[in-house]
Design a protein around this nucleic acid. Structure first.
Lengths: 189, 189
DNA sequence: TGCAAATACTTAAAACCTGTAAGAAGGGCG
DNA sequence: CGCCCTTCTTACAGGTTTTAAGTATTTGCA
């Protein structure tokens, strides 16, 4: 019987794909083993835990998302940068809902990929460079931006906006306009 | 052997409490049965499914949250109303993280408590009454507000803001100021 | 009051999932 | 070729969900 050729790399990647297909919640070691034509116990050679698997998928998602955002941000400034970043963020979440969910859930603990988190924060700060905000207002603004992006995407994918006919894309666009307004007129202490 | 006296009502309430204690993810029918001194199968008299249980907890949370928000909103207008509503929202989520998680996760499907969802939307619209926004801008603003509140609370409880020393309460307050600014200067199409 | 029907609960069992331990098979390398 | 490390399997323990069938308790009605 030939080996299945499972590696941690391929395992995490498969888990991410499966998450996008059936939802992050439903990604199980058993289902993954099935997909590789292998018994569940075999996966413990490549991954410590079910938790370890989830954290690694989260790390992958955070890194991918950061790559996208960085690409979107390149060569842009001000509102241009804001919109590009926000759209990259939202598009990624819509294309990869399972990965996005992974990136949210497993943030806590020491196990987190601190590097990816820092990249995100740094990029959000880069957006603000066009708005001339001093610290600590910058930190407040970073938190607000991240909150709005995540909240919108999260509610949208959960179906929270489906009850009203207004186009979700349009509301998104207007929300970005409003954020731009808020940043340009940031309330000084 | 005396009966345990489980009712759907008490079951849901216990599930909500358990969720706040150990996290919504970890609320299991078995754990609930244990808490009532009853075998797991007994709970199927009061609840259709594990999913049914989760949906009912979500409903409870949404209703409680709506009550709190309504109370906070009473007699206020404009920014006052905005801040009161937002704080009620955030305080509830911090006091009842398990319930709040329940209210988020199980939004989809037809099973949702449409009534509670409508109450939330109506209240958010009530806030906007002080800002003189016509439709469809009002819908856009409702979505933005909800997104920011949910996003902030969600990231905060997930530990997303712990990496930076800036006080989370202060950033929250400044975020509300910025939202007020955005609403007062809402970008017309 | 007493008994029948409705309801609460138990036991039993199937189907999954996680995780550990022990051993067999595959592949690289001296 | 043969050794050894790694991958994978088998076997098993423990836990959760859910259904089915049966027992016991309470309710309500004559």
């Amino acid at each position: 019987m030939a080996r299945a050729g499972v590696t941690t790399e391929r395992l995490i990647r498969a888990a991410a794909e499966l998450a996008d297909e059936i939802g992050f919640q439903n990604v199980t070691l058993s289902a993954l083993a099935r997909r590789f034509g292998v018994k569940p116990a075999a996966l413990y050679s490549h991954v410590k835990d079910a938790r370890d698997l989830r954290v690694k998928v989260a790390s992958l998602a955070l890194a991918e998302l950061a790559d996208r955002a960085a690409a979107a941000l390149a060569g842009r400034a001000g509102k241009d940068a804001l919109v590009a970043f926000a759209n990259a963020y939202r598009d990624y979440a819509k294309e990869h809902p399972g990965r996005y969910a992974a990136a949210q859930g497993e943030l806590d603990e020491e196990t987190v990929d601190v590097g990816a988190a820092r990249r995100h924060a740094d990029m959000t700060r880069a957006i603000l460079r066009g708005y001339d905000l001093p610290e600590p207002d910058q930190t407040d603004a970073v938190r607000m931006l991240h909150s709005t992006f995540h909240g919108y995407v999260s509610l949208e994918t959960a179906g929270g906006f489906r009850r009203h006919p207004r186009e979700v894309d349009v509301s998104w666009s207007r929300t970005l306009d409003a954020l731009d307004t808020a940043l340009r007129n940031w309330p000084r202490a």
